[in-house]
Write a protein that binds this DNA or RNA. Structure first.
Lengths: 156, 156
DNA sequence: GCTGAAAGGGTGATTGC
DNA sequence: GCAATCACCCTTTCAGC
């Protein structure tokens, strides 16, 4: 396992690093030789850069992207959650414990949390939200389509 | 490259598949032999399952998770966007073209789009939103913390 | 589905430029 | 930073069970 620096250490990335990250994001399993060709370096140099990007914490992990629909999650909802007075921490804990909440951000403004839910059915939405509505007001939006799927931020 | 089926083909996954996906999500680079140990199968069988999961489209891709802070994106915002009459498609196109919008869902309800922005500074927020506000009303929330970072949906 | 073995390829380290 | 080499490990594929 590679020793990582603190995550917020400012990394100075050149054009090659950015190209490398883009290529890795697309296919993290391609051979180093192929990556090297893509970024215009030799294989050893490329391998070295990948190690460095990992050590710097720029690359957090190598992972697989899983299609939620293939797992039966045919529905996505985005829910804004505004805890009732005194319920903030408890609401956060409840959300954390319900695995269908696949993402949750605490934000400024009236709605304290904005969360993403993966669901098998619309009935399940009701079932899950009922665990929250005793302690918070919720506002639900069903995802109809995704014009921009999670993508890389600009690397340039 | 592996031939993939349509993404929405219902995959019937057993416990072993789910364990395998969880292990891969955590570290997609670990040797098949290690994965095999984790799920209690032999290496060849495990490799075969991974191939099948790819062919079924359950695994969409092998990728790297990149820390946006390491790229200098110290700020995240979630913006609800409600296009003015007749501006829906144009707004969608504008969002698509601005790379700082790293995610955008079209949803039911009054706010047509819910988007995530990666930003270098608060000034940049203003700059980017100004490209949208001619054609839509926006409502912005700044991310203060992330109680639940993008995680796997329940595999059970 | 398993084991065992063989073949091929990629990786990682080293050396020298 | 590059190129070349070498040893090692991993993967893949094939038998046979």
């Amino acid at each position: 396992m590679i020793k990582r620096l603190a995550p917020s250490v400012p990394a100075s990335l050149d054009e090659t690093d950015r190209a490398l990250l883009a290529a890795l994001a697309e296919d993290a399993r391609q051979p180093v030789a192929e990556l090297a060709r893509a970024v215009g370096l030799s294989a050893p140099s490329t391998a070295e850069r990948i190690r460095r990007l990992e050590a710097q914490g720029v690359i957090e992990r190598f992972t697989v992207q899983i299609d939620p629909r293939a797992l039966g999650f045919t529905l996505q909802a985005i829910v804004r959650v505004k805890p009732l007075p005194g319920q903030l921490h408890l609401v956060e804990e409840v959300i954390r414990r319900i695995p269908e909440f696949v993402e949750c951000d605490k934000v400024t403004g009236d709605d304290c949390f904005i969360c993403r839910l993966y669901l098998h059915s619309i009935e399940q939405l009701d079932e899950i939200l009922s665990k929250v509505t005793e302690r918070a007001e919720t506002s639900t939006a069903i995802v109809k389509s995704t014009p921009v799927a999670r993508r890389l931020p600009p690397l340039g």
